[in-house]
């Protein structure tokens, strides 16, 4: 067992966990943050993506010990109060989700993509950058649309700040 302490969605949380505990298990089983999902066993599907110190990583391929002391943001921590994050709003407005299972990981990856590329995104880049996130419902058409839409919204929001 290992004692760990990290910041999740702005709150300091600590726990005593088995060393083999993955970050996704800690989030789901210990913190009841069930928005982060598990869709595969081989680090391919991206349903589990969260941000660790501002970088989008696969929480199913991270021991919670590795992020001891880090700051983690999950899908539950992305929006401010009732107002959706521009990426969440863009997914809703562009029908970028169907069953919703891949959506949290998809949104967390998409936010990271926009943060890295800013307004320079085009369709081919978005499709390539989504390589680590699998969706079985949407055929990606509207996910790509959502990310491009959000990229515009996020750069506008940034410019306004």
């Amino acid at each position: 067992m290992t004692a760990i302490s990290l910041t999740v969605n702005g709150k300091v949380v600590s726990g005593n966990v088995e060393d083999r505990t993955l970050l996704v298990q800690f989030l789901r089983d210990h913190l009841n943050l069930t928005g982060t999902h598990v869709g595969c066993d081989t680090s391919q599907c991206g349903a589990c993506v969260v941000h660790v110190d501002g970088r989008a990583v696969k929480s199913c391929t991270t021991l919670v010990g590795q992020v001891d002391g880090a700051s983690v943001t999950t899908i539950e921590g992305l929006s401010h109060g009732d107002e959706l994050h521009p990426m969440q709003a863009a997914f809703r407005d562009n029908h970028g989700l169907q069953c919703g299972y891949c959506t949290p990981g998809m949104i967390m990856s998409a936010v990271d993509i926009v943060q890295r590329h800013g307004g320079k995104l085009d369709e081919a880049t978005v499709r390539h950058e989504l390589e680590g996130n699998i969706c079985r419902c949407t055929g990606y058409h509207n996910i790509v649309k959502s990310v491009l839409d959000a990229a515009g919204r996020m750069s506008t929001a940034q410019a306004a700040e």
């Binding site: 789901r28 943050l33 069930t34 928005g35 982060t36 999902h37 598990v38 999950t74 899908i75 539950e76 992305l78 929006s79 959706l84 969440q88 709003a89 997914f91 809703r92 407005d93 029908h95 989700l97 919703g100 299972y101 959506t103 949290p104 949104i107």
Partner: peptide, 18 residues
């Protein structure tokens, strides 16, 4: 626009494993 999407985009969906 879909009524279900607020819960799904905010991680509030409730699947069996949740």
């Amino acid at each position: 626009l879909r009524k279900e999407d607020r819960r799904f985009t905010t991680g509030k969906g409730r699947y069996v494993d949740d």
